[in-house]
Nucleic acid binder design. Sequence first.
DNA 1: TCTGTGGTATGCGTGATTGTCATGGACTTG
DNA 2: CAAGTCCATGACAATCACGCATACCACAGA
Lengths: 303, 303
Amino acid sequence: MDLQEASLVGLRVFREVAERGTLTSAAAALGYTQSAVSRQIAALERAAGAQLLERRREGVRLTSAGHVVLRSAAAVLDQIDAATRELAGLPAEGGTVRLGWFASAGAVLLPRAVAALRRSHPAITVTTREGTTPALVRALRAGSLDLALISSAPPFRPPDAESPPLALQVLAERSLLLAVPVSHPLASGDSVDIAQLHGQSWIAAQSTGADQLMGVWPGLDERPRIAHTARDWLAKLQLVAAGCGLTTVSASLAAAAPPGVRVLPVRGGPRERRRVLLARLPGPLPEPAARVAEALRAAVESG
Amino acid sequence: MDLQEASLVGLRVFREVAERGTLTSAAAALGYTQSAVSRQIAALERAAGAQLLERRREGVRLTSAGHVVLRSAAAVLDQIDAATRELAGLPAEGGTVRLGWFASAGAVLLPRAVAALRRSHPAITVTTREGTTPALVRALRAGSLDLALISSAPPFRPPDAESPPLALQVLAERSLLLAVPVSHPLASGDSVDIAQLHGQSWIAAQSTGADQLMGVWPGLDERPRIAHTARDWLAKLQLVAAGCGLTTVSASLAAAAPPGVRVLPVRGGPRERRRVLLARLPGPLPEPAARVAEALRAAVESG
DNA sequence: TCTGTGGTATGCGTGATTGTCATGGACTTG
DNA sequence: CAAGTCCATGACAATCACGCATACCACAGA
């Protein structure tokens, strides 16, 4: 019943689990078996004298004790990282910002911001990675990201209910748009009426369970016909260009639509607004991260 | 060659070693064998990819890599402590200040300051412990003390040459004094001439090696006759009272001399000045520690 | 209802870690 | 030189932590 008996590997495993959300995927990421991870977590819980994870059907969630330990684990592991670098004679890793982003931000917003930043602040290194909203939020909380671009749909709930609440900043609020092949009859006008969407073929994202179906215009009162599913935006848009179906795109992607695709607004239904948020842990923002946030704001506004 | 492979026990052992100055005493303190400590250090050095300790005849000293690791180790272990407390539901240990002191400060200065503090700031808990200058300095650097009272003699060199240098503040500078039995011929005057010290019997502290002989008036050109040696101040002063010999006392002790002992200045020789310093790690001083420092300053001045 | 598919826990055997004990080497001091 | 300090290391034992296989649980879908 004393965290003192914890081990560094235990903490590392725990952080990975907190970030991935399941023991199994954490194990895969660490090159362990699921069994080893399960044991490490059990040992850490024994050391902490409290349950750290709430086992649920679809994985695990942190308990409040779990959050306490996660915060410590992140601090401890960062400290060790810093010492490792210092021992290796490298300068303190102060100029690197780790940024996470949701898939649609990767086409336009992210490259534009990073490019601008490289010109204006060449000393800042930005490393980024893509992820879903829950994955990005967990990564923020596990301390493996500094900033995360996430998207949010009405009713614009915060991405998690943990404490402390994440610091959120709305970068943009735009309407959801529709991608149609230029050869498609709907492509002739400057907008599409929602009634015209009946009976169309759709190109959807992998519906990973609880997530609402992405790619199909929301609120249709029919069962949509899914012609193709694809995770990748380029694939989806090329499928659209090839006339295989329609799909929804966020406004931040419109500028990157390939030839053969028209991006149009939809009239008629309720306004389908989407927000682009910049999320981070509360607290003071280090200088380089603030510059990155600034560049992201600029990139959003210039689009 | 990666500190990542270090273990928490390794770091804990290393901190203890850094604080004690020898593997052997660290082992005793931790309840390990010297051999186990040696192996832990070896493992940590292997993980760090650098030698952390410089082995010397009288123990070990930290190398520069060792200081890097020590700073990290202290931070990591403190972090774990904090998490342990938080898990146990205790409030953050913000109101406790750990103060170290040199033996002569224990009689008057320390009790006075602590008593005053308990009246003026009852919320602050002060835990203290006695130690030699090197032990206190090591404890500061290992993060197991917040403040340390140390004494310093000319040429008033800093207590260690490590980096970053300790923050030092001179609380008082006073002359060394002489304790004589009231029954002793020298006790009749208001001061003693250095010439009168020839041939006297002395009560000295344990001369633990390199330390200069404590208790005997410095600079005598004869080999002093040591009648008794004692570590404890009460014992030494009672021996003086019993007429067994003379000894030197710091001015901060004068007020606590028992009956039967007179404390007198010495004329003639070079001025034997002694400073009382308050030492701490550089950097911002947390609020409660600042209050303790203030109380110590006040206690010195009111004496 | 049965079966497949996510996920986590656990019994068992094995190899690596991490201790103790005992010993040895380098050095200082009386 | 003998005795004391200190640290390092070979031999051994106990424990730990892993992988494997399997059990378990909840849910989804035919």
